[in-house]
Nucleic acid binder design. Sequence first.
DNA 1: AGAAACATGTAATAGGTTACATGATTTC
DNA 2: GAAATCATGTAACCTATTACATGTTTCT
Lengths: 177, 177
Amino acid sequence: MSLPHALLTALIERPGSGLELAGRFNKSIGYFWPATHQQIYRELAKLERDGLIQSQAEAEARGRKRTYHVLPEGRQELRRWIEQEDAPPPLRDALLVRLRAEAAVGSMSLDRALRRRRSDHQSRLTNYLSIEERDFGDGPQDKSAALQHLILQTGIRHEATWIEILTQALDILHREQ
Amino acid sequence: MSLPHALLTALIERPGSGLELAGRFNKSIGYFWPATHQQIYRELAKLERDGLIQSQAEAEARGRKRTYHVLPEGRQELRRWIEQEDAPPPLRDALLVRLRAEAAVGSMSLDRALRRRRSDHQSRLTNYLSIEERDFGDGPQDKSAALQHLILQTGIRHEATWIEILTQALDILHREQ
DNA sequence: AGAAACATGTAATAGGTTACATGATTTC
DNA sequence: GAAATCATGTAACCTATTACATGTTTCT
């Protein structure tokens, strides 16, 4: 249920069309709330039906660009939603199921999957660190920038934790006995 | 797509019925792959149709207990699945969307949600630490126990990271200016 | 004019969540 | 015998994923 609110946030940061949003998502909000363009178009249409955003298009036709912006009602709805409480989402990581399965059957075949995952996390970490350098490298931050930095740091810590975990897992699997 | 394999793992650890599994899930695999009893019954039926597990019941009737165990084909399927590689799942945490939205609109109303989340993570952490004390407190571990311990440590680090993040977020929101 | 890129969508499927329905066993 | 608990299931819905379809603009 967060996608519509993620879209409202992105459109407040800057109005745009469905495909533009899909592109921006890949490099920002999508790191913690991914969405495909199909999902985005569907939700944008619904948000407009609900009167939270509005679109302008040069002409009403299929392949024509349609730019959305947030209405006051949308901003209001976002403010309302921000203060909702919800429980922490579960990890839901298949790799943990695999580790548990390995502990149960001892197949000894996890090695490749673990290395692959570790290198995935390593490249994500590198990417996040270079974004941090670029966007938050110098100077003091206002509240808004500090929050965005914190979100990025969440990703950084997440990747770093996984790298450690996977290294430990490989150690365990390679131990004698 | 991990639920069937999580169930195979649980049934290898110990055969059981649908509701028993649902109960066990809440205290073990469910920490990183939650499932309701409805899902579990559906998947068990499918696993039996596919010839991976088999059930025994005293009588064929609706409310009668039905105990499942894993067939060799199921064990084989689990071994095959373990070595599959997959990309890290996204964080998909609504709270990060909320932080980003707060950065965009500055509603100043996140406080309660952040404290609630932090205390959720704190009680989970306490719970995990006491499980660690109880199950892995003393002595050296064989490979299987070391893996299960590592899975628990993943949860512990996850909760600890979130507590830090949320504390930082509260600091930022309470800052002057 | 043709190709590539931009742009918006539809359809089918799978997985998970929530609400509800029903039978069997145990306990008081 | 009634209530609580154990146990198995159905149905409706929502979200996300994947594959496909189609129109428009720009570049060469």
